[in-house]
Design a protein around this nucleic acid. Sequence first.
RNA 1: GGGGAGAUACCAGAGCGGUCAAAUGGGACAGACUGUAAAUCUGUUGGCGCAGCCUUCGGAGGUUCGAAUCCUCCUCUCCCCA
Length: 430
Amino acid sequence: MNFIEELKWRGMIHDMMPGTEEQLNKEMTSAYIGIDPTADSLHIGHLVSIMLMKHFQIAGHKPIALVGGATGMIGDPSGKSEERNLLDEETLRHNQQCIQIQINHFLDFSDSLPNKAEMTNNYDWMKNFSFLGFLRDVGKHISISYMMAKDSVKKRLETGISFTEFTYQLVQGYDFLWLYENKNCKLQMGGSDQWGNITTGTELIRRKTGGEAFALTCPLITKADGGKFGKTESGNIWLDPAKTSPYHFYQFWLNCSDDDAEKYIKIFTLFSKSEIDALIEQHRVEPHLRLLQKAIAKEVTSNVHSEKDYQSAVEASEILFGKGTYETLNKLDEQTLLSVFDGVPRFNIAKSSLTDGIDIVDFLCEHTQIFPSKSEARRMLKENGVQLNKTRIGESYKLTTANLLNQKYLLVQKGKKNYYLVVTNENEYD
RNA sequence: GGGGAGAUACCAGAGCGGUCAAAUGGGACAGACUGUAAAUCUGUUGGCGCAGCCUUCGGAGGUUCGAAUCCUCCUCUCCCCA
């Protein structure tokens, strides 16, 4: 199965330029995908691009990951309703380094490979490009009407777009031209929102060099309920374990809806068509087993983090959602307890404050900041939404040292999924 | 530069002198159901020493027994004309 066929059954092709498939069949081709270094970690939205490149490399072609140091300084108007904040160079460099480390998990950068993956930063060739030079060498080839016809620009004309963002497509187009000329890169891939920017690149290549370059986009990942993919109440799902713990990362995939899971397993795992078909079929018979979600969660968590992180995420999940009761919780040794709740918000209080017993409401708002106000804590307690060490408690509950797990810890649960670990210290001032 | 409209809780948006801690919708959170799902139903959604009190309707003053509501000034946003 070639690259295009592979992507097709996975539902990863939104659009491509005529001739793309022929080009790929003809020879080993280089393709690039741009990544905006807006943060010091990728999030799972980027995973789609990474998987695209992964498949591309598996199919024997050469993927180039382009970090948009220069373009990140300008801001892509696509899909944005407002002008963007600009990033400074230091931040961009730092972000690039972090991103590189994460991409290393997925693509093969070994020198021995003819199609080894590469990473570049467009800042390197843009930083010394003079303004006049750019106007003469790039701007001259593209007309205003061509640029204005792009959706990303059209949508913003009403609300306002700066000259800087208007120019964005030229800068990205130039990237493509540069890679075409210097690295023989003939294809640019990206999300479907990038189509306009990509075609400015192919147009520029055609007009300036007479050469032919291609475009391929994948659909933007959506959720069946219309929500934004990759976001939870608490924000983005990051690949950096310091930003999103492996446990939460695992939970994200496990919580996908059935419809989404059927889609995601094709995009985010490398399972073969027959394996996936079998899984889907089985999942439809016994949906409550959530085989699909578990398969995705296992695969993606192991790839992004590690096999070991996956194992502990499963363990933690079993304790938290399985038959977890006060008894099982109390049986855990300190080591296990801490590893299970690694990444869970943590509060420290003095052990001495418990000796006389404290009011649960005071405990929840004053000693810890689990609730922002006492009203909210009371409300939630009335609604039966608070659990202490897996046991539901009421508004008038008094907390004493007898509640401590391992003489040291308290597990507070707000609703079903929000856990807080409270650690007591012997020392008042610790 | 001239003229007009507006600013209300997380968002949208009613209220236009007392009965307003502020309708309604969305979102969010919780409970029931369940598969840690979806759908559905129920409840909550300013604070506190919670049958009561305190602080909120862009900001600062003023009128009034009483202001989100009326007046003055200021700040900001949007629209139209030049």
